[in-house]
Design a protein around this nucleic acid. Structure first.
Lengths: 353, 353
DNA sequence: CCCCACGCCGTAAACGTTTACAGCAGCAAG
DNA sequence: CTTGCTGCTGTAAACGTTTACGGCGTGGGG
């Protein structure tokens, strides 16, 4: 045992050269007799190819990195869940980085591509700075970016379309007869905040409703902030009949406040969220939400990367994944419970000692 | 550019040998002048050490694998979230495997340790078979198992204690004055199901309540199953005043059914879940739940592995992480909304094209 | 009978590092 | 001036593969 068998051990035992062993293991044309001897020796010794030596020589690691901004964020998890099987099926291992949305960490990851421990990278930065672009240009391996990237950046890119997403939701609310549709948006200096705000204005115009500053309230993307913001909004405009929230957490906060205020959802006020996280299905009433296709973005990103890893040179591609409105009780007003909710086992546990 | 600079390129440019370059890069004692020349050359060329070659020679990859049964399961995600930073801080990269709880896949992962692409492995199998144990014994790198493992298996092991967890919850319900406490358990032939069932009996005995078969209902660990089971239970025993559910999803199903039946929670029926996923805080009313310490189990597992990677030989250790009861509205009956809920940004998105 | 083609195999170099060892210069002590 | 340190550096081997190249034996065609 001591020090696992190598190609040399096998060669010695089978009475052939290491070249022959390598050929047999790689299925290159070899005499039957030799194949037999090598296979026998390998089996007896329990030989396993050393991936590191293989990578050094072949310049392929069969590993791909995914740098997610935040391991806790359901949107990134949805991506991960799709990326993983695509890579696995193609014979790649997944190296996971968490950058905590810190630009410096993201740039470190890009730079570390020079170490050549992976063949490629999928990255979803919160926002792309000039430093990012600079490092990207010098990246030593193919990269796919999930998110916004300036026009003309020569890199494969997969993006969502939250602007259209907001329009879907507003159209829906308008079709239900709502006419005083407020928006609880995230900070306007974030990329998603700006896009969603723009979507709101466009959508109102499209359905022929006036844009009213009074109906817009800014909150951070968290539940307590959502509560605060919706409370202010209600105080100022008690007459709202629908709330478009910039993400599901804000929407949950909205539900909290409406419940306390004795407003029925959706009868008095309809509520829509965004991101379609699993929280949307769990809440009461369950939450209508705009899916921005995190899962699909992950899958597409993985496929683009694989294509580039196999195919070689190619024009950089840009793919936009369309949003999808998932209607639930918080706007539709049907009973709850119809919907099957997700899967999720229990069993990561054990009994007592 | 073409083919990134190596230690040789630098040696040539700095007019020294590759050994000197290596020494400088590794901070071994070297004359100041030489250090200067090498550093200058390395900077100018934008040199980055090749991790693969380094690993081949040093027999250390600085990578650790985590094999999770299911990328979608919040319990495993909680582990991942803790494992990641611990490893990162110690200078290790994380390779993520998803085995979909398929034994054959898990065994493949164990076997693949022979490829030496990682220095160690953390694995959380759903259940451990004989084949697992056999492969484990022959594993070519240190392994830490999160979950149940037969007595005496010579492997580092971190486990939860859901049995005691159930007791915590039952004690709580009993202290609130509940006397007809039903249990909605998972399948009894799963490890968690059996442990939780045992915990239920023990706990009843401990508080002096009789064990009544009528009050036990079996469901699979999912929400629709929970609904079905609780509906049956209510039909049979309309007098229950508390429900102990074997996980949060079942508990969410219970809330659905109770709401439909017009029973108030917690006034008429108190409900407790298990696993303390983020769904527990999102639901209405928010859900009292037993945390089995997934996060802490992840952290401990990572620490055990690092210890073994640095320390070398050592007795196998077994750590049991104690459960913790998180009281929320579904039993306590206070208002909702007090609690801050988790953090979770939005921003994995982009605006429209 | 000679030559060549062909199929198979072994030798050796290469991938980019780390590191044991020896060599060399400078200097202090004898 | 020799000896022996000391401090630094270079040469070369090693990690475990893959693969270009040439050699060898066989058999068929001229």
């Amino acid at each position: 045992m001591a020090d696992g068998p190598t190609i040399n051990t096998i060669a010695a035992r089978a009475g052939v050269s290491i070249a022959s062993v390598s050929r047999v293991l790689n299925g290159l044309p070899t005499r039957q007799e030799t194949v037999r001897k090598v296979m026998a020796a390998a089996d007896e010794l329990g030989y396993v190819r050393n991936a590191v030596a293989r990578s050094l020589k072949s310049r392929r690691t069969h590993q791909v990195a995914f740098a997610m901004a935040d391991v806790g964020n359901p949107a990134y998890l949805a991506m991960l869940r799709e990326i993983q099987p695509v890579l696995k099926a193609a014979g790649y291992r997944l190296v996971l980085h968490s950058t905590d949305a810190v630009a410096a960490d993201e740039i470190d990851v890009l730079r570390s591509l020079g170490e050549r421990y992976v063949d490629g990278l999928i990255m979803s930065p919160l926002r792309v700075t000039d430093a990012h672009l600079e490092t990207l240009a010098a990246a030593r391996a193919p990269v796919v970016i999930i998110g916004q990237v300036p026009e003309g950046t020569p890199v494969d890119n997969v993006r969502a379309d939250s602007r259209t997403g907001v329009r879907l939701a507003i159209d829906h609310l308008h079709a239900l007869g709502r006419r005083r549709i407020a928006m609880v948006n995230g900070p306007l200096d974030t990329v998603p905040g700006a896009a969603r705000g723009a979507g709101y204005r466009e959508a109102l115009e499209a359905v022929g409703l006036p844009y009213d500053e009074d109906l817009v309230q800014i909150a951070d993307f968290y539940r307590p902030e959502g509560r605060r913001a919706v409370a202010e909004l209600l105080a100022r405009r008690p007459d709202v009949d629908a709330l478009m929230c910039a993400n599901d957490l804000i929407a949950l906060g909205a539900l909290d406040v409406l419940r306390d205020a004795g407003r029925r959802v959706p009868e008095d006020v309809a509520v829509a969220g965004m991101d379609d996280t699993d929280l949307a299905a769990a809440s009461w009433p369950s939450l209508t939400s705009v899916s921005l296709g995190s899962a699909e973005r992950g899958r597409v990103a993985a496929e683009l990367l694989l294509e580039r890893l196999n195919g070689g040179e190619r024009e950089p591609r840009r793919v936009t994944v369309p949003p999808r409105l998932v209607v639930r009780a918080s706007t539709a007003g049907e009973g709850h419970g119809a919907e099957g909710s997700g899967a999720e086992g229990s069993g990561a546990e054990g009994s007592g000692a």
